[in-house]
Design a protein around this nucleic acid. Sequence first.
DNA 1: CGCTGCTTTGATTCGTATCAATAGCAGTGG
DNA 2: CCACTGCTATTGATACGAATCAAAGCAGCG
Lengths: 229, 229
Amino acid sequence: MTDCATCVVRNRAICASLNPAELAALGKMGRRQKVRQGQTLLWEGDGAPVVANVLEGVLKLVVSAADGREQIVGVVFPSDFIGRPFGKESPYSVTAMTDAEVCIFNRNNFDEFASSHPDLQQKLLRRTLDELDRARHWMMLLGRKSASEKVASFLLEMSERLSGQGCQSGARTGFELPFGRQQVADILGLTIETTSRQLTRMRADGVLDLPSRREIVINDRAAMEDMAG
Amino acid sequence: MTDCATCVVRNRAICASLNPAELAALGKMGRRQKVRQGQTLLWEGDGAPVVANVLEGVLKLVVSAADGREQIVGVVFPSDFIGRPFGKESPYSVTAMTDAEVCIFNRNNFDEFASSHPDLQQKLLRRTLDELDRARHWMMLLGRKSASEKVASFLLEMSERLSGQGCQSGARTGFELPFGRQQVADILGLTIETTSRQLTRMRADGVLDLPSRREIVINDRAAMEDMAG
DNA sequence: CGCTGCTTTGATTCGTATCAATAGCAGTGG
DNA sequence: CCACTGCTATTGATACGAATCAAAGCAGCG
């Protein structure tokens, strides 16, 4: 069992919809678990017996083809929800991109609990609708944008989502990506070389700086927004 | 007001979760509306004051860029739900691909109704989760698949979804697409020329027949599945 | 210091977009 | 019934962008 009262995402995760008694009941079902970078929590096509809240770290949702090609279809941050309630098998695998900690529930237990807690279910619905919007927006990027537009859009979105994490609000000009070039490429539907070239060119054009491998500093946000298409 | 008792999608749409009294209440809020082919029901970025169930016809969800590029991010059939409950603005436009009929609700009224009917909300959640799975699967296609793989995957999915419509169950070998080449291209993130060339080649290879512009007959399903990657 | 893994850079190939023309079909009116 | 018109689809030639193949650069770390 888990102590929800002290949970870092208590007020942001779907649990925020619950009163203390309900929270205690849910807490009995859940347990905290550390996940190492690179470790896979859920496998594509698996029975997917669990769902979870992310407490710390960043994880990726991956769909892969038989020949090894991979597409990252989602990236989840603390307070986000992972897994597939009311489903049979996981349609993608979930892997930690950094060391992470999650709060895990048995899927059947969670489904049952959710069915009897409409507020929780509504929170889950809202989150799922947001995710769907995000996914569809990403489809436009994958299907219609050029390499430079993809990279620019990606950096802008990351600057926003990562700033949701820390203290300041609003988009940041400088931030650290929680993943390497290959992962960026897998998010954008590009190769690692093309991704690298686009970043290099943007640096040459003065639109951004790359202080280290994973750090990004956006110098000219307006130009970046233009590039994003 | 609308007579739900005689509704063609009564048992398949989210309304199936309601008892007769609830159905009557919902029916009072909704009204049937015909939509002509090409007519746009919801505009991207719009206040999106409505949600709806599809009774008849096929509609597309489109995201477009400033320069006119379009990506179709979803296709909806009878009994499917459209619109964005609990949201501010529609993240995409909804346009009829064929003459259609929908059952429309004011979004605020619907949101309120849904909030007080957990069963309806759960149906909506399940549907949204399914849509999200479908969207993510499509992201893999858009980001990582070649033109021929895209076309093959598309035809297979359509043969399944369209057969959900008619009498027989299971996938069909022959069916009629509810849209033209440009729309297929917009779904697959390709140009109309590339789409056409892929179909022509598949016909030459004997994998399929094209009796008329919109008809598809799959001759060799196994080969098609191979091509889909 | 010299591994090892990730990233950048370079040369070339390949796939799809683009540009341009033709062909097929559906509807209209002579 | 058959030209005529407009629209959609096919086919062809070429250009361009991103993938691929290959090598070198750069960090971190024993």
